[in-house]
Design a protein around this nucleic acid. Structure first.
Lengths: 223, 223
DNA sequence: TGTGCATATATTGTATACAATGTAAAGATA
DNA sequence: TATCTTTACATTGTATACAATATATGCACA
């Protein structure tokens, strides 16, 4: 049996973060991870570094890797960047969307709903993010898709930290209306809907300054 | 004397690529690099991986790292992405620009001209790219700056491959007018100037389909 | 008790040895 | 000579041993 690659470990761990199975602040010791996946630390270190590049992990010298805890500023930046990239991408996608794409998107939405119905919030969150990536894929913009992937992963971290009400999850029929616009190849509508959708998510975050940073006082004083 | 870190090697090699001292297609053998910098391959591999993440290097399994050769499609994508990110960023920067920022930008432009006068095209190119990064820094958009850095490095590769006339370099007083707009905190002007500036660079590229891909026939048939 | 110091342990950082793979050279056969 | 096969070499991939650093533990002393 072939051993698992660094890239596969990266994917699995990234999905765990995306689904909030690994929460911001969680430590990932190299030994631990290497034992779980049955490979040497060499491979694990590659995977951890990959994730650090995507902004999912923060690696501190001699102190190891832990799931990143985006600051308020970073949280804002992530959504500002998405606001720049995604609406135009949605427009470009609309102009290229094929029936096959629509079918795939609809299957995707179904999955999301199923996950929600079964109370698998983390999974639903991941699928919701992948929906956005799927649109960049349709737009055939590989470079932007690459950036967007990082932004969406980080969005998941932002949501983990700053989501207003965990109980009431957004009833997301926005994705449906977006697919509708795409199926009509209506670029204007797609762009506007995406803009609104992002603003909607953004508004559901609690991005006010807060005192409770005392938790991370230790970290704050470390240097 | 302290040994050089992977990050420092990353920077030095990245600058070499940015300045076209290392050209697209150039191979970087681990042994060679490790000897040059006096460190083990372990460190070199980290650096090479870093650069691969930024899109500067392409690493093929068991075949090593070489400076990336962006395809026509990637070339287009890079400038499309820049067109989405940079104008808005210039606007944001204009609204926050301080006299100290202006001074730094002007020093920057002087350096560019000096490099041009001395015929150091590569250096001038790098400085020109850094000018754009400086604007993202002023805008205080760390996330976008991070993406932009990758895009600008890749732009350098695109220019190396697709620049129309190497002899006639763009007489760049656009940077000057941009600084002027920034100094007046004129966001609208800054945004428009940046849009035009990017279009101008884009128009100086020869991004038509070409036959001479036969050079890479070998690579094409490899799988 | 509580604080400071010294020691022990845990964890990451780096170099190196060996394995796996790819590339080039030499030889065999037609 | 041309092509295929085999062999040798060069290069990258992975695991592991050891060094460096950070964290935790125990002890002395006030």
């Amino acid at each position: 049996m072939k051993p698992i690659t660094a890239e596969e470990i990266t994917t699995q761990l990234s999905e765990a973060v995306h689904e909030h199975r690994l929460k911001p602040g969680a430590k990932l010791r190299e030994d631990e991870v290497s034992e779980v996946f049955g490979v040497s630390r060499t491979i694990v270190r590659q995977a951890l570094r990959n994730m650090a590049f995507d902004g999912l992990l923060t690696i501190e010298k001699n102190r190891g890797a832990s799931v990143s805890k985006p600051t308020l500023k970073e949280a804002h930046e992530v959504f500002q960047a998405r606001a720049l990239l995604e609406p135009s991408t949605a427009r470009a996608a609309a102009e290229r969307t094929t029936p096959a794409d629509i079918a795939r998107l609809q299957r995707h939405i179904e999955e999301e709903h199923r996950a929600l119905d079964q109370g698998q919030l983390g999974l639903a969150l991941k699928l919701s993010g992948n929906f956005h990536l799927e649109i960049a894929r349709i737009a055939d913009q590989h470079t932007i898709e690459h950036f967007l992937k990082q932004l969406i992963y980080r969005s998941s971290l932002v949501i983990a930290l700053y989501w207003k009400r965990r109980d009431a999850l957004c009833e997301n029929n926005t994705h449906n209306t977006l697919v509708e616009a795409l199926s009509k190849n209506d670029g204007n509508a797609a762009e506007d809907l995406m803009t609104g959708h992002l603003l909607n998510i953004y508004s559901q975050l609690d991005l006010r300054e807060r005192e409770e940073e005392s938790i991370s006082l230790r970290d704050a004083l470390r240097q």
